[in-house]
Amino acid sequence: MKHTPELIVMLTHNDVTVPDATAVFARCQHTRARYWGFKEEGLPFAEMQALFAQMKACGKTTCLEVVAYTEPECLRGAEMAAACGCDILMGTVYSDAVHAYCRAHGLRYMPFVGQISGRPSILHGTPAGMICEAEGYLAKGVDGIDLLGYRYTGDAAALNRAFIAAVHAPICLAGSVNSFARLDEIKAAGAAYFTIGSAFFAHAFGGDIADQQHRLRLYGGPACLSVGTPRPMFPVYLPSTMKSWPCWATKAFCLTLTTRLSTTATIPRPRWMRCSAISTA
């Protein structure tokens, strides 16, 4: 089922919450990303609770992604999510006990599918098997699926396309979204959500995390972004040959142009330059 993909910012690196996650969020809390989260490992529990409370106070929807493979570990992760007041529990190997706990405590539940191992996680299995597994979980009432598509040991792009086309529920593509090429694939596949964590801390999309979110918005959405009170429109003269450029070149030109101009400017542009959306709003 196709959606307009929405970013979930994960304050994690290599599947562990970064130690300065609270400070990072404080620097980025003004951005338009609505979904924020981190992992169950890396911070003291009291600090996790305080950070999730700060996110909620800023109007964010909160996610705890639990990388655990036994039922007792998965249940502990669900208990942590509930105690932190999270909105969504992502990850865990599905179990009826975890699902029942989430329903009893008002948590949306998006479990993993496939055969998962390690940390950072690696995904094994077949697309057909994962689709069948997801359909079984959805029949039991889960709220969506956390698919580690780019951690797959096979053809990741083919898995993502087939899985999203076949599974009629919100799908989050989680892990190793670290290039504009993969963003293009996510848009084409139509995932409901995608996570970025390690790639932000590796500066895969630019400078600090707030700047990278802005660049993602420019790349995936309009060629200009209005923030705050818009300034009067002014002309920007574009190359006459631009209409014949390949898509990647047009996007790169627009991204360079708009990052050189004030982000509060409104830039008139022809309809053919509009790109399909990735939402960070």
Rank of each mutant, 00 (worst) to 15 (best):
A81D: 07
V93G: 07
K60A: 00
M55P: 09
V18I: 15
V9Y: 01
A33Y: 01
W36C: 07
I88K: 02
A26R: 08
Y69T: 06
K39S: 06
A46K: 12
M55S: 12
K56S: 13
A46I: 10
M80T: 14
P44I: 07
F52S: 05
R76P: 06
E73A: 10
R32G: 14
T61G: 03
H13K: 14
Q54N: 15
H30I: 07
Y35R: 06
T70K: 01
N14V: 08
E79Q: 15
E41Y: 00
E40H: 05
A68Y: 04
A57W: 09
Q54I: 12
L75I: 13
A21Q: 04
P5N: 07
F52C: 12
A50T: 12
A100H: 00
V18R: 02
A46P: 08
H99P: 10
C102Q: 00
R76K: 15
T70Q: 06
F25C: 04
V67P: 05
C28M: 14
D96L: 14
Y94H: 12
V24A: 03
L51W: 08
K60V: 04
E47Q: 15
D20E: 13
V98E: 02
G42R: 06
C28I: 11
C58P: 10
L51Q: 03
A26K: 07
T4Y: 02
M90A: 14
H30D: 14
A100T: 10
M55H: 13
V24T: 08
T92F: 01
N14W: 09
T22F: 14
M80Y: 12
A50M: 09
E47P: 07
C84R: 10
T22C: 13
D20W: 09
Y35N: 01
A78I: 06
L51Y: 06
P44K: 05
E40N: 09
A23Y: 13
Y69C: 00
T61W: 07
C102M: 05
N14T: 09
R32I: 10
Y94M: 07
G85P: 08
L64F: 00
K60Y: 00
A33P: 01
T62S: 11
Y94W: 11
V98C: 03
L51F: 04
M48L: 05
V16Q: 11
K60N: 02
V16K: 12
A21H: 03
G59K: 03
V24N: 05
A83D: 14
A81C: 13
E79W: 11
L7M: 10
E79S: 13
C58Q: 14
K60I: 07
G59I: 04
P5H: 02
A46H: 13
E6D: 11
T17A: 06
